[in-house]
Design a protein around this nucleic acid. Structure first.
Lengths: 296, 296
DNA sequence: CGACTCCAATACGATATTGCATATTTTTGT
DNA sequence: ACAAAAATATGCAATATCGTATTGGAGTCG
């Protein structure tokens, strides 16, 4: 490898990243447990080394330059790798064993968890993970589950929550189905088609109405709260369904029947009991889930 | 962000990465322009900080522990991000302008270059890139092109070459074509089908024969050295073709007609005149191409 | 078998970095 | 309009890090 190239000081890179993320040298110093002058000098030295002005030293605070903004992406990627190192090292240094229960919808469980759990196995091979794939909201306080992925912000003050990437729901239908019934071009056409409901019909009707589609219960011959079931119904051509965009897009036989439809933003939260702060194995799983599913 | 987590010294991370990649503390010291004792201390300190033994100190050399091997992946990712920072910073610090000509097959140009060139635009927006998408081998020494992607190791000592990821060619045919002629299950069946040749027939015959398919020139009614043309012929159902696996796989209407076929490994090299070492704009493009296409 | 080479660990003086204290500037709240 | 708060930059002493020199071990070649 061309080592001379990455010859700038990597700690200075962390200083810049923290400063950019936290918004000021002082805030970054607090976050890193260093002092503001140190950060000031490190950032200045990094700019010197890279030959690029990263911050505009205008009036009140630091402002990222255009160059700084473009580079920040790579610094973030560096920081994420550093986080993964720390997480994995923690798992390997302290033999993490025991049982952790994760509650989430079967959709999340099926489409997003396997990849993450494989990573987890590399980090903590002796951990026993139980997936509670259910739409019932598990009660974390009664320890029915240790960690939950929920689609609404939890209210309970005893719970620790972290916002995850939003899921966007798009319309999908099988190409064969659309071949048969015709591809709709106006909301009026769509009202003649069949839909696969993903919640109780009343809420679905409101959701669709807010996007200009006036449907009735007659449009929803099939309803299921299970995304996997919904997917299969849509694939078999039983109607139009709302699916997470990356799930739907991974099936070539599905297409978006009405691209003008404004996607549905579904927010997600990673939730755990506050005890997670002190429990290594739960913390490890929580951090790994957060790492892969975190917003942005 | 959880900054306390990435609290280990990032320079120590680089020390470990270089040591693991170069194979010894001494080699890493030479590569980084530091000294062996420094690396020794940094790696030891990192192990202390992470609480993980990364190297087995056998008498002769260092040997990665299992933990070290698993963590190395993340350290590599950190180093790659650092490289990207350096490359992008170089492009932004020294207004890189001028003209760079890249020669490659039109297949490479069409399927792999656009994404990379978009990255390049962010780094050096004023660079003029000329793509010489041709199968003729451009003569780098005569400066017909500044950089070339070739599929054989260059012999000329005046050229600087870097090995890229291998491309693997798989068989592809359109599903409709296979519906019509039937899906072959034995080499004998295959010999009855039509093929789209990607080189002159004689070489194709040898290539197929070495994989147990005994064909004749009669199987090759169509031949083209152009991968894009080949792709279109295959998509239109004119026969079975050999396509780079990720290209073929991105078309849902194509399928592998004979999964037992041993994929064809095509090696790739990034080549430039030695002057690249001193020419910033060529170096920048070369490094960016290498970054995205490099082996592993 | 012995000289040579390559590698890692440690001691110690030289160098560089950090934190504390402080000056300066700009924003915010009364 | 003025004071308090918060942010960045710089001087200086304390501390940590680095390079040189050296020791010791293991493989290699004649």
């Amino acid at each position: 490898m061309e080592w001379q190239r990455s010859a700038f000081d990597w700690n200075q890179a962390r200083a810049f990243l923290a400063t950019a993320e936290e918004g000021s040298l002082s805030a970054a110093a607090r976050a890193l447990g260093l002092t503001q002058p140190t950060l000031s000098r490190q950032v200045a030295a990094l700019e010197e080394a890279l030959g690029v002005t990263l911050f505009e030293r205008t009036s009140r605070a630091l402002l990222l330059t255009q160059a700084g903004t473009q580079l920040l992406e790579h610094f973030r990627s560096m920081g994420e790798a550093a986080n993964r190192i720390s997480i994995a090292a923690t798992g390997q240094s302290q033999a993490v064993t025991g049982h952790v229960a994760i509650a989430c919808t079967n959709g999340m469980a099926t489409f997003f968890l396997p990849k993450i759990l494989k990573k987890l196995q590399a980090t903590a091979p002796d951990l026993q993970i139980e997936i509670i794939a259910s739409n019932e909201m598990s009660d974390l306080r009664r320890r029915e589950a240790d960690i939950a992925i929920r689609h609404a912000r939890p209210q309970d003050e005893n719970l620790f929550a972290k916002r995850l990437r939003d899921t966007t729901g798009h319309l999908f239908a099988s190409s064969k189905y659309l071949d048969a019934v015709g591809r709709p071009s106006h909301p009026i056409d769509i009202a003649k088609l069949q839909f696969v409901g993903s919640e109780y019909p009343e809420r679905m009707l409101g959701l669709m109405a807010s996007r200009g589609l006036n449907l009735t219960v007659a449009n929803f011959n099939y309803s299921t709260a299970s995304v996997t079931m919904s997917l299969e119904l849509v694939r078999k051509g039983l109607g139009i369904g709302i699916l997470p965009v990356d799930v739907g897009a991974s099936y070539p036989e599905l297409e978006n029947p009405y691209p003008d439809f404004r996607p549905i933003e579904i927010e997600s939260w990673l939730v755990a009991h506050r005890e997670l702060k002190t429990n290594l194995r739960i913390r490890l799983v929580f951090d790994l889930l957060a790492e892969h599913l975190a917003a942005k």
